[in-house]
């Protein structure tokens, strides 16, 4: 059963990736300007532009260009950056590693923080603590990450001078784990605030729902210690709807890294992708998009799978 399900999801995943690359390819070509123009700048002579376009293969029909790219990609060759003339794979994988570090740390912060806050708020419904959490969660959702990033960078990086607001390691004498953690602090928190808020709200309402269930009353009636009721019965069951949400948040977090990376000069794939779009470096854009979409899609498959394992009802339906 699981196998056919996995197989179906896998085919679906491939289709999603194909669709994503086609859409990006079209969008990049519909946008005015091309790599030749971006490289040569305002004083680009017509003949020089035409020659460069010819050499870069930009004069071929769109579908040919796409198929050409696809063919190479299927053979494991993502092509070369037009602007830098280096293999796309060498750019995107090293950058992705940095995004993965930032993203996973933020994700852990978001999950732990969101679950803890939401669960406690749910248990203590109506209390002062609960209200505070609701206010914080609402503002967390409302504040755009890049804005928060700039404020945090200004306050902690420039004014108080307690945390670095730029880059991944210190330029001189840096490089250790402690150095990395220091540099991670601001961007990771910036990135985590939104998901924390979403997870906390969801956890809270899910907890409230579970609280009203019969089995909770039964557990209490059995004379179980309140802590055992909370962890074994309430928390476990409240978690079910949240698992799916976590998968979704992981994807959202991935897309939000682009702006946070720009604000904190974090050498990640988001910043690379944004820059490649601005310079019309199509192979780099395509490569980054493919990688990001693949990660997004795989994460969501895992989330579905986990959801299915935890909650058999999903499977049956």
């Amino acid at each position: 059963m699981y196998l056919t399900w996995m197989l179906r999801r896998f085919v679906y995943l491939i289709l999603v990736l194909l669709a994503a690359t086609v859409v990006v390819f079209m969008m990049m070509h519909l946008a005015p300007g091309d790599p030749a123009q971006a490289m040569l700048g305002p004083m680009a002579r017509g003949d020089a532009l035409a020659q460069l376009r010819q050499q870069l293969g930009l004069n071929d029909p769109l579908y040919i260009q796409y198929l050409h790219w696809l063919e190479h990609t299927l053979r494991g060759d993502l092509g070369r950056s037009i602007r830098q003339q280096v293999p796309v794979s060498s750019l995107i994988f090293s950058q992705f590693k940095n995004t993965a570090i930032l993203g996973s740390v933020s994700f852990v912060i978001a999950v732990v923080g969101g679950l803890a806050l939401g669960f406690l708020a749910g248990l203590k419904r109506g209390s002062f603590f609960d209200r505070i959490i609701i206010v914080i969660a609402s503002s967390g959702i409302a504040i755009p990450s890049f804005f928060l990033g700039l404020v945090l960078a200004y306050v902690f990086g420039i004014r108080l001078h307690v945390l670095p607001s730029n880059g991944m390691y210190s330029l001189q004498g840096g490089g250790g784990l402690l150095d990395l953690i220091k540099h991670l602090a601001l961007p990771a928190i910036t990135l985590a605030v939104g998901p924390i808020a979403v997870v906390a709200r969801m956890t809270r309402s899910s907890t409230l729902e579970v609280l009203s269930q019969d089995y909770v009353r039964t557990a209490r009636a059995k004379g179980l210690h309140e802590r055992a009721v909370a962890t074994r019965h309430i928390f476990k069951n409240a978690l079910i709807p949240i698992i799916h949400l976590l998968g979704l948040q992981a994807g959202i977090l991935l897309s939000a890294t682009a702006l946070v990376e720009v604000v904190f000069s974090w050498p990640g794939i988001g910043a690379l992708m944004v820059n490649s779009i601005l310079t019309r470096d199509l192979p780099v854009t395509q490569g980054s998009v493919l990688l990001i979409a693949a990660v997004y899609a795989i994460v969501s498959v895992f989330a579905d799978f986990a959801h299915m394992v935890v909650d058999p009802r999903v499977h049956q339906s």
Binding site: L15, V16, A19, A258
Partner: peptide, 16 residues
């Protein structure tokens, strides 16, 4: 999840 990409682009746009 088919919209993952355009969605990501939209986010960038709306954030601007």
């Amino acid at each position: 999840m088919t919209y993952s990409l355009p969605n990501a682009m939209r986010r960038i746009a709306s954030r601007r």
